[in-house]
Simulated scan of single mutants.
Amino acid sequence: MKLCNKEVSQIGFGTWKMGGGYWSPDYSNDNKYIEIIKYVISKGVNVIDTAEMYGGGHAEELVGKAVKDFDRESIFIITKVWPNHLRYDDLIKSAKDSLRRLDSKYIDLYLIHWPNSSIPLEETIRAMEYLVDQGIVNCIGVSNFDVMLLERAMSLTKKYEIVANEIEYNVDNKTAERDIIPFCERNNIKVIAYSPLSRGNVKNNTILEEIGRKYGKTSVQVALNYLMRRSIPIPKASTKEHVDEILGALGWNLSNDDYDRISKI
């Protein structure tokens, strides 16, 4: 699968709450998180998702340190600009700050984290396209945009396409299947699924457990395999054991009957 002309893994890795929470850094588990990200990459997952808001940018710093041991060209880094930084100059500053924290020459995919109706989207898109012109980012996209907003963003681009929309999508929240996912599919926009494990709830889903027994898989693996059909899920893990479980979602496919059964949960 290709995104921004780079081969990407079917599953990505999220970094929310690594290195702190909402704009608040926490340095106490840095080595642990760097090792986990390295482990993920060593296992063939090359999509790493982060944001300037995560730990006030500290998650980006952890990602930057983790990828140093790998060929940067083989890693696909996604980061996101917070909605209060969507004015032209603010957005460019945010991107440059993210680039510095990532200690990288470029950002693979830069997303508008959430829309902000108080700032003209035209101004934001103009700044995003400037970043591509300058080689700071390779591709641009959005996050948490509905069909109407995504259509508007697409209409405002002059030079570069919106290539991705990152949204909440999991077996407990399949509302995106009604409109935004079909719209993205029609327009060649990749869907990136955050909270793909429904904040841990999939572990207690008896239908997923039952289906999983047929394949020798856990409910987590079944849930991710379901999402992989129409998105790139970006689960997070804080142990190598959980990473290994996540990777068990790869290399097999749910039957159409089982897929349909999950779609009706």
Rank of each mutant, 00 (worst) to 15 (best):
F145S: 08
I136N: 07
A59E: 03
N29G: 01
V67N: 05
F145Y: 15
N205K: 14
N187G: 08
L86D: 04
K158I: 05
V191S: 09
R261F: 00
M18K: 10
E123W: 00
V67G: 01
A66W: 01
I262C: 04
L247H: 09
G64D: 10
R152N: 15
E60K: 14
L109F: 10
R87W: 07
S155K: 00
R100D: 12
K43H: 09
F145W: 08
A59K: 03
K159L: 03
L62Y: 01
K2F: 10
Y215W: 00
L62C: 05
M1I: 13
A164G: 02
K105D: 15
Y226I: 06
S9W: 10
Y106K: 14
I75A: 03
S118I: 11
I34M: 12
R152Y: 12
I181C: 10
K190V: 12
V81G: 12
N225Y: 01
C4K: 15
D244Y: 11
E123Y: 01
S238C: 11
L149C: 07
A223V: 08
V171E: 00
P233K: 02
S117E: 15
I180W: 03
M228L: 13
S94L: 09
I192P: 09
A59P: 04
D244K: 14
D260I: 05
R186F: 06
R186M: 13
F13Q: 11
I112L: 14
E166V: 02
S104H: 00
M148I: 12
M148Y: 14
R186S: 13
A95W: 12
S117T: 07
G20Q: 04
